[in-house]
């Protein structure tokens, strides 16, 4: 079986459809397509052995292919609030940087996440964060505050967490109990844009930490694979449910590591999605849970593992 690896293709608009067709023909999937003026960015999964071929074909078009570890993941960037204290610089810079590595990021500004004694998390925030593949908690400058407030704002969060804060990594590890999955120290409340080399270095460190955590999750998934590869299901939904193409969202269907978020109203479309045929005699309902998302009225699809369905599409 060919291994699909996440890559980003960057190139011009001119003849980019040929690259899209090529990825499709090779059995790859395009998870996200951005057209910005004359540039095109394709977040995609392509067979490992064919990357060189895509590079060769893209060369005359001045396109480049970069390994992007976070393609096909949806990450929540959790900020204690959306006040001027935390925005725009830290939260937005982090979200944007993760996006450049291929992730789909959503900013979650907590309603009452500030303060050390008064910080808390409500059920909607908890559920929304839990719908992601990973949460990056963007915390502040004081060890004492992180130690006290973090248990409150991570309560019942089941997805892996990567914490950032001003204290160094070791201090963060010491302050956080039970441990989080990843830590990046030296990034506190910063009131200016990340532009110095050491600040950009911290963002790279964050991307590495996030990919390390997600790779661990991918390894675990490889032991009990999903019944269908999420980007594949995404392609089927985009093909079969034509309303998806009418949506104006940047990513009408968002790929996650273990599922998809379809940005159609649950009440009207859930049954259509459930009865959609993925392969001969296999419907989405057989291999996945189609549930309402806490994010607006979207549909959240959680693909079941092979061990549960005994189906591998």
């Amino acid at each position: 079986m060919t291994t699909l690896v996440p890559v980003t293709y960057k190139g011009g608009v001119y003849r980019h459809d040929e690259i899209m067709d090529l990825i499709d023909d090779l059995g790859g999937y395009i998870v996200q397509k951005h057209v910005m003026a004359q540039d095109v960015v394709l977040q995609s999964f392509v067979p490992r052995d064919d990357i060189e071929m895509i590079r060769r074909i893209a060369k005359p078009l001045a396109g480049e292919v970069i390994e992007a570890p976070l393609v096909g993941t949806e990450i929540a960037v959790v900020s204690p609030s959306l006040e001027i204290h935390h925005l725009p610089h830290i939260s937005c810079d982090i979200a944007e940087y993760l996006r450049r590595s291929g992730a789909k990021t959503n900013m979650v500004g907590l309603a009452r996440g500030f303060g050390k004694r008064i910080a808390n998390l409500n059920d909607e925030e908890r559920d929304v964060i839990n719908e992601h593949d990973l949460a990056v908690y963007v915390l502040g400058n004081f060890e004492e505050c992180i130690r006290q407030k973090f248990p409150a704002i991570r309560r019942e969060i089941r997805v892996p967490i990567v914490v950032t804060g001003a204290p160094d990594r070791e201090t963060l590890i010491r302050a956080i109990d039970p441990p989080a999955e990843g830590y990046v120290g030296g990034v506190g409340r910063i009131m200016h844009r990340f532009k110095r080399p050491e600040e950009l270095g911290k963002l790279d460190e964050l991307v590495d930490e996030v990919s390390r955590v997600l790779d661990a999750r991918r390894d675990a998934l490889a032991k009990d694979p999903l019944s269908v590869f999420p980007p594949r299901l995404m392609a089927i939904i985009e093909e079969q449910i034509h309303e998806v193409s009418l949506l104006t969202h940047p990513t009408p269907v968002t790929a996650q590591m273990e599922g998809l978020r379809v940005k159609l109203p649950y009440d009207s479309y859930a049954d259509d999605v459930r009865s959609l045929e993925v392969a001969e005699g296999v419907t989405v309902g057989d291999i996945a849970d189609v549930t309402p998302s806490r994010m607006r009225n979207y549909i959240l699809i959680r693909i079941k593992p092979f061990s549960e369905t005994r189906i591998l599409v």
């Binding site: 004081f142 004492e144 201090t171 506190g188 409340r189």
Partner: peptide, 16 residues
Amino acid sequence: PDEVGRVAYERVAADV
């Protein structure tokens, strides 16, 4: 009392 926080706040105040 927290040295890391002190440096961070120096920067925050200067930036603001």
